[in-house]
Design a protein around this nucleic acid. Structure first.
Length: 293
DNA sequence: AGCACA
């Protein structure tokens, strides 16, 4: 019975073996006054999230907008330079999961802007420098256009590479006035004023943090024992319940603390069990905490 | 996309 010793180990989120797999998302449909920190807040809770960058493209008003009408027929604000974002994940699977979770979500209820998320054409590569923040701003706007915020000092980093977007929007103005700035890391949690609470509420709707996890996309032969083997390695693990609703099993895993549940969701998102036959587990916060025994 | 247990 020789099988790889790691076969039953938990599958931690690790880089894709295949470097050609895309782990970066291209995000459009953003209001033009969006802040890098808002993009970061949007993705930070998604499992496997690594970092993101906000990019102002140089082309502005004259160009025909790549999209002017949202999926539900509303007009999207199109003024000044376009702003897009790239969100990079630890691997392809978690990028896909985040894309499905957030694509089409209303980013700004007031402006009615709806997020368009697709896989980027190429992966983001960032030189890991100590002290570099969780998000980055790339400003390719023509310099005359009134500089808004994000005017921190340029630390001379020209190594940050932006991936190409799905629309090939910016092939035109390449090295023209590229400025890359690393924002100072400040705790976003404590620096989010009123406006962002609304964002958080909109985005996290149906995904409120909970110390119980909902686990789906399990194989038909998944057993409670098998799943428990993996989950019980994590601190705070309380109990597991499996239920087969109309066929495929789903599971509920309870933890002592929300943070412990979050850690598990992040670590095990999209990972495979020996019984998996349809891709990795899909893990979300449960809608309600598991009741006491 | 699929969220129960009392």
């Amino acid at each position: 019975m020789a099988r790889p010793p790691y076969e039953y180990d938990p599958y931690y989120l690790q880089p894709d073996q295949d470097r050609n797999l895309i782990n970066t998302l291209f995000v459009s449909g953003l209001p033009d006054d969006v802040k890098a920190r808002e993009i970061h807040n949007l993705f930070r809770r998604r499992a496997g999230f690594d970092y993101c960058q906000l990019k102002y493209t140089g082309r502005g008003n004259q160009e025909a907008p790549t999209w002017g009408i949202g999926d539900i027929g509303e007009r999207l604000p199109m003024s000044g330079a376009e702003v897009v974002a790239f969100a990079t994940f630890l691997n392809h699977q978690s990028a896909i999961a985040a894309m499905h979770a957030l694509n089409g979500v209303k980013f700004d209820p007031q402006a009615g802007s709806v997020l368009h998320i697709e896989l980027a054409r190429s992966n983001s590569r960032r030189k890991r420098k100590p002290g570099s923040g969780p998000y980055v701003v790339i400003d390719n706007r023509i310099k005359a256009s009134a500089n808004t915020q994000e005017t921190s000092s340029d630390d001379g980093d020209s190594d940050t590479e932006e991936p190409s977007g799905a629309e090939d929007a910016d092939a035109s103005n390449k090295d023209e006035l590229k400025t890359v700035k690393s924002d100072t890391v400040q705790d976003p949690e404590n620096s989010v004023p009123a406006a962002n609470e609304q964002l958080e509420r909109t985005i996290d709707e149906g995904a409120q943090a909970c110390s119980t996890l909902f686990i789906a996309n399990l194989g038909p032969n998944c057993t409670e024992y098998e799943l428990k083997q993996v989950l019980s390695k994590y601190p705070g693990f309380n109990m597991l319940k499996i239920r087969a609703k109309g066929g495929m099993p789903v599971a509920f895993a309870d933890f002592e603390q929300v943070e412990q549940a979050t850690k598990v969701m992040t670590d095990l998102q999209s990972s495979l069990l020996p019984s998996s036959d349809r891709g990795g587990m899909h893990i979300e916060y449960a809608r309600s905490k598991m009741r006491k025994p």
